[in-house]
């Protein structure tokens, strides 16, 4: 368990700001105690200092997971967000996509969202923007990246992909063993 290196910090926050923008600062500067990001076996965990102190008693082999896993660094040093990060992405997300109940299942099975399934979208969402996907009743289902801006969505065909799937809560069942 160690601090993120300078390079890793940069890569990590660049990814995070794509989804929650300036709200990243709120994750770092919390009124309810000190929280920090730590790296272990190329995974990034978000945890409070209190838990950090407790976890320091264990070595890497013994510690499977601590705090909330945000994702992992790939071998080529890119950062991939994981569905477990949704807890922190959903409340701070700047751009959101709501999907119709009929498209919910499709999304939860790992498919992209097409125009027909799109219920609502934040205004002025640019293209290739990280968005949090919610159901019409405001339940966060996952996150993805828009393939079209809001304006282009209006003119798109019903079968055109509007938002690329990245992670969904179905993964808790589908890839239970790899989620830490």
């Amino acid at each position: 368990m160690r601090r993120l290196s300078d390079e890793q910090t940069k890569i990590f926050f660049e990814k995070l700001t794509k989804y929650i923008g300036t709200n990243v600062k709120l994750l770092l500067d919390r009124p309810d105690g000190a929280y920090c990001f730590r790296e272990m076996k190329r995974r990034v965990y978000y945890l409070s200092e209190r838990i950090l102190k407790l976890s320091e008693n264990l070595n890497e082999e013994q510690l499977v997971s601590v705090g909330t896993c945000f994702g992992k660094f790939t071998k080529t040093n890119k950062f991939l967000l994981q569905i477990t990060a949704l807890t922190y992405l959903a409340p701070y997300a700047q751009y959101k996509v709501w999907i119709k109940p009929s498209a919910e299942q499709q999304f939860l099975y790992g498919n992209h969202i097409n125009k027909a399934g799109l219920g609502r979208i934040t205004e002025n969402t640019p293209q290739h923007q990280g968005v949090v996907v919610l159901s019409m009743s405001d339940v966060p289902l996952g996150f993805g990246v828009t393939s079209k801006s809001t304006a282009d969505c209006k003119l798109a065909d019903p079968l055109v992909t509007v938002c690329f799937h990245q992670a969904d809560i179905g993964e808790y069942v589908r890839s239970e063993d790899t989620l830490i």
Binding site: R3, T9, F13, T17, G21, K25, L28
Partner: peptide
């Protein structure tokens, strides 16, 4: 650590 990370975020933004 916190202030350094906030600085990094600020730079990215």
């Amino acid at each position: 650590e916190k202030s350094q990370q906030i600085e990094v975020v600020q730079r990215i933004l």
